[in-house]
Amino acid sequence: MATTTEEIITPPKAPNAFLARYDRIIYGAVGLAAFLILWWWVVAGGFVSDLYLSTPQDTFAAFVDGLADGTLSSEILPSVQRALLGFVIALVAGIGLGILVGSVRIFQKLAEPILLFFRNLSLLALLPVFVVFLGIGEESKVAIVVWACFWPIFVNAVGAVGGVERILLNAARTLGAGRVYIFTRVVLPAAIPAIFPGIRLAAANAFTALVAAELVGGAQGIGIYINNAALRYQTPQMYAGILTLGLIGILVNAVMTAAEWRLTAWQRGLTNK
C-alpha cells in the first residue's frame, strides 16, 4: 500500500513541555517520596526497631524541636566555623601549591610518589597523629579538615595546570605575550574548570572529616551532638543531627555549583552554539 504524503510529513508528537522542563524536579520528588515511604515502612512494619532507626516524622519533629529550643541550632555554628576555616586554608594552600607544582615539570615528577601515597591514605588512620601533635582542641579539628580538603584541591590543581593545551601557550607566545600575561590570562582561566571538581569534593570532605574530628573530643559541634544522642539512645535526635549534616551538604553543594557556574561562564560562551 502506498504511503500518503500526510503520513510522510507528519512529525512525531513532541514530549510534554512541562515534563521536559521539570523532569529532574519531578523525578527527584518521586524518588524522595518513595525513599521516605520505604523508610517509614521499615520501622512501622517492625523490620527494624525504633530503638535503632526512628521514623521520618519523628526525625523531622526532633529536628524542628532541636532548632526551636537551641539544643541542635547551637551546635551548627561551631561546626560550620571549623569546616569553613579548614576549607579556606586548604583552598589557598592547595591551589597555590598545585599551580606551582603543575607549572614546573620537574616538580610534578618529584611530587608524584608523594601524591600517590597521601591521596590514598585513610583519614581515620591519621586521627591519632593529629591528636598526639595538636591535642583534642580546635587546632586538631581544623587541621583534620585542612588535611581532608587539601588533597582533592591540590591534585586537581596540579593536573589542571599541567594539562593546559600547549597550543594555547604557543599561540600566546607567538603573539608576544609575556609570562605574567600567559599565566593570568591563559593558564589560570583554562585550568579553573578542571580545578573546580576538586574544590567541590573538598567542600564535601570538610564536614565528613569534621564529624570524625569532633567525635575525638570537644564541647560543641554536630558530630558531638550526634555522638551524645547515640550514647543516650535518643534515636530521633541522632538522626536529626545526621539530617542537619545532609541539609548543610546540599547548601554547600548549591553554593559551589553557583560559584563554578559564575567563574566558568567564559567556557560556556565558547562551547555553546
Rank of each mutant, 00 (worst) to 15 (best):
N253F: 12
K141G: 06
R268V: 12
Q220Y: 15
D65N: 07
T71W: 01
G137L: 06
R179A: 05
Q267K: 14
R21H: 12
F207G: 05
L210E: 06
V255N: 07
A259M: 13
Q267S: 12
A265H: 15
V142F: 09
M238Y: 02
G249E: 10
L245W: 02
L121A: 15
D69E: 04
N253Q: 12
V145A: 09
R21T: 13
F35T: 14
R166K: 13
A148N: 00
T264N: 09
A190V: 10
V64A: 11
G249A: 04
A258T: 13
L231F: 13
A203N: 09
A14Q: 12
A259S: 06
V161F: 01
K273E: 14
P193C: 07
E139K: 15
Y22S: 14
A190H: 01
A125D: 12
E165G: 08
M1D: 09
E138C: 03
R232S: 15
I95R: 05
A209C: 05
E75Q: 15
G223S: 01
C149V: 05
I222S: 02
F133Q: 06
A20V: 08
S73C: 06
S74V: 01
L36I: 12
I199W: 08
T4R: 11
L72P: 00
A230Y: 07
E139I: 14
Y181E: 12
A202F: 11
L121K: 11
V180Q: 10
G98P: 08
A62I: 01
A90D: 05
F47I: 14
L123M: 13
I222R: 07
I95L: 12
M238S: 10
F133A: 12
F150M: 10
T4V: 03
G28V: 03
V255I: 15
E139G: 13
V30N: 02
P78H: 08
N272V: 14
S79H: 05
R166Y: 05
L53A: 03
R185A: 12
V101N: 01
L67Q: 02
V132Y: 14
I114D: 09
K13W: 10
W261H: 13
Q237V: 08
L121D: 08
A212I: 04
L251Q: 09
F60R: 02
A206T: 07
I199K: 06
T174H: 00
V88M: 09
A125Q: 10
T244S: 04
V155T: 13
L247Y: 13
G137V: 11
F117I: 15
G86S: 00
V30R: 02
V211S: 04
G218Q: 00
G46S: 04
Y181N: 05
E214N: 03
L38Y: 01
D69G: 03
E214P: 00
